[in-house]
Each structure stands twice: as structure tokens, then as C-alpha cells.
Design a protein around this nucleic acid. Structure first.
Length: 315
DNA sequence: ATGTGTTTATTTATCA
DNA sequence: TGATAAATAAACACAT
């Protein structure tokens, strides 16, 4: 049996990749985004293994943040002093660990930019950042579609494009992904996740249920994240009601987007023109949308585009 | 000086 | 066992 607090167990390397650790950290934050230093802190607080060799793993983690499209940078505004940007999860990254393994995803999440936003994108960014009232932009239909798509960013598609059996979002770290589902996923070596974790000295389901211990403080967090799969927790765009409602009305907080709900939203093509209603298009949504737009525009200045097209690339 | 972020290259580990 | 995701190392730019 694992002994909480016993170093021989807790010092073991956790069975999580940097991507999953980082996603955990981001998800644990109330605003669903964290600066780099807080990601470090989260990991070090919970996993003693990472209190050593900090230079090594932190370099790796930074590499992961930059390299993987599932992480997006959200710039600080002037009234948010501090170092570096915030990091959040890409709204479309989906259930990256649906196979049950937190060591290796089935596919890498890649944002594919088939086309790019036109010069209007910067206007849109400006708009997203500062617009408060009901507004209608004079955009072409394709541009409207693009922005409408962004407007619904906080929703998440299942981690596959084979449409059809949309079973609803399962958060990467939802409790059911950690301890539920009968461990449909299998860890390396053919060991079921539970067996593997137990082998490593980590709690397994029967232990997790009543073990919000010092050794696994993040379990409580995971537990709370499980509630994110409850549809009624979300308002429009999949924004958790708490997040929506606590946002100050005047100053737009750089609040992130929640990681994904299962709301059934109309297809992008069904939205004829951009009409942004602040009651449904809240600041956090706008912030992330603008960040993605900004990055898309900056990395592809030669755009003549229309649609922001995020797809999963099988490469 | 240090922290943050990007990129390239190489090696290691996992999974189908 | 091959493909590829992840880990590691390192060089570099930039901002504070």
C-alpha cells in the first residue's frame, strides 16, 4: 500500500508527461490559465520528484509549451504585472488522453492553418479586447464564419474528426479519466492504469475515493474537474457559469477559457453574420479568441484569408 | 543576470 | 518492430 508522505513512494516519477502535468496545472487554476512560474510551482508542490533537476525538466516543459499547439499563450495586459504570458489550453485540444495513458497521447494535437485571417483579424482582435456593446461587424460571410467559429471556441470537439458519435466531452483529467472507465486504457507494458499506478505506489481508485491526502493533493482538484463534465455547469460557449459571472463588468479580465463542455452548438456555417452579444460572448472567450487570432496572424502575415481552421492533423 | 520563449537536433520510450 | 510521441539538450533572442 502506498504510504502518503513516504519519500520512497512520492519521489517516484509520476506517470504523467509534461503535457499532462502542464494541463493539470492549468486546469487546476480558477481562471484556466497560468504563468510559467505557477505551472512550475504546481508541479513541484504536488510531485516531489520534480523538486530536483529543475533546470532539466523546466527546460523540457518550456519546450513543450512552445512546441505543442495544445498550449496557447495569452498576453498580459498592462494592468496585470508579472513575468511572461499566461498559458492556457487550446479550446480544441480535446481529450488528449482519451486512451487512458497520461504518458503518451494517441495523436499530437496540431493546429492546421489552411487559410489565414485577412487583415481584418487585427481589427477583430481589437474588437475582442475592447468591445463591450452589442456590435455587428461588416464582414464577409467567410470572415463572419471565421469569427463565429472563434466565438464558439470554448467548446471542444471530441478528439477526432470522424464526426458522428459525439459522446460528449471527457475532460483529460476528469475523474473518470483518472479512475473511472474501467481503465479501458492500458499503460505501457500492458499494465492497466490502475495496476501501473499501484505498482508505482500511486493510489488507485479505491484509494483515491477517500484519499485527498497530502501526497496527492491534486486528486481533489481532479475530482472537482470532473464536475466540469456536467453540462449545466456551462453557459453559452461552454463557459462555466462561475467564470462568467464572477467577471467584473467594466474591466475585461484576461480570463481564460474553460476547457470544454459538450454543448451542442450550431455549425459555423449556420451563423450568417457576426453578432456579438456580450451576455454570451464574455471576456475570457474574447481573450483566448484574440490570442489565437493574434498568433495565427503573426505567424502567417502573408494571409489573404478567411477561415480560421483548426483541425487535427494526422501526421 | 535571470526568466521566458522559440527552435533545432538527438535520443528515448510507447504504442499499434 | 517501425512509427512517432515525449524527453532531453542546447543555442539563441528578448524582456525585465
Amino acid at each position: 500500500m502506498p504510504r502518503p508522505g513516504k519519500n520512497s513512494y512520492s519521489d517516484q516519477k509520476p506517470p504523467y508527461s509534461y503535457i499532462s502535468l502542464t494541463a493539470m496545472a492549468i486546469q487546476s487554476s480558477t481562471e484556466k490559465m497560468l504563468p510559467l512560474s505557477d505551472i512550475y510551482k504546481f508541479i513541484m508542490d504536488r510531485f516531489p520528484y520534480y523538486r530536483e533537476n529543475t533546470q532539466r525538466w523546466q527546460n523540457s516543459l518550456r519546450h513543450n509549451l512552445s512546441f505543442n499547439d495544445c498550449f496557447i499563450k495569452i498576453p498580459r495586459r498592462p494592468d496585470q504585472p508579472g513575468k511572461g504570458s499566461f498559458w492556457a489550453l487550446h479550446p480544441d485540444c480535446g481529450d488528449m488522453f482519451e486512451n487512458g495513458s497520461f504518458l503518451r497521447r494517441r495523436k499530437r494535437f496540431k493546429v492546421h492553418r489552411a487559410e489565414h485571417l485577412a487583415s481584418k483579424s487585427h481589427q477583430m482582435i481589437h474588437y475582442f479586447h475592447h468591445q463591450h456593446g452589442q456590435t455587428k461587424l461588416g464582414l464577409t460571410s467567410s470572415e463572419s464564419a471565421a469569427v463565429a467559429g472563434i466565438g464558439r471556441l470554448p467548446h471542444f470537439q471530441p478528439y477526432s474528426l470522424n464526426g458522428g458519435q459525439s459522446t460528449g466531452f471527457k475532460h483529460p483529467f476528469a475523474i473518470e479519466n483518472i479512475i473511472g472507465r474501467d481503465y479501458k486504457g492500458v499503460m505501457s507494458g500492458g499494465l492497466p492504469l490502475a495496476s501501473m499506478m499501484h505498482h508505482l505506489g500511486y493510489p488507485v481508485p479505491s484509494q483515491l475515493s477517500n484519499m485527498v491526502s497530502s501526497m496527492w493533493p491534486h486528486v481533489g482538484m481532479m475530482d472537482s474537474m470532473a464536475s466540469m463534465t456536467v453540462p449545466q455547469e456551462y453557459g453559452h460557449f461552454g463557459m462555466p457559469m462561475k467564470t462568467i459571472c464572477h467577471a467584473p463588468s467594466q474591466t475585461i479580465p484576461a480570463v481564460p477559457v474553460p476547457i470544454k463542455p459538450t454543448a451542442s452548438l450550431p455549425p459555423v456555417s449556420a451563423i450568417p453574420s457576426l453578432t456579438v452579444n456580450p451576455s454570451s460572448m464574455c471576456a475570457p472567450t474574447a481573450t483566448v479568441a484574440a490570442s489565437i487570432l493574434e498568433q495565427s496572424a503573426s505567424t502567417h502575415p502573408d494571409n489573404k484569408g478567411s477561415m480560421l481552421h483548426s483541425v487535427l492533423v494526422h501526421s
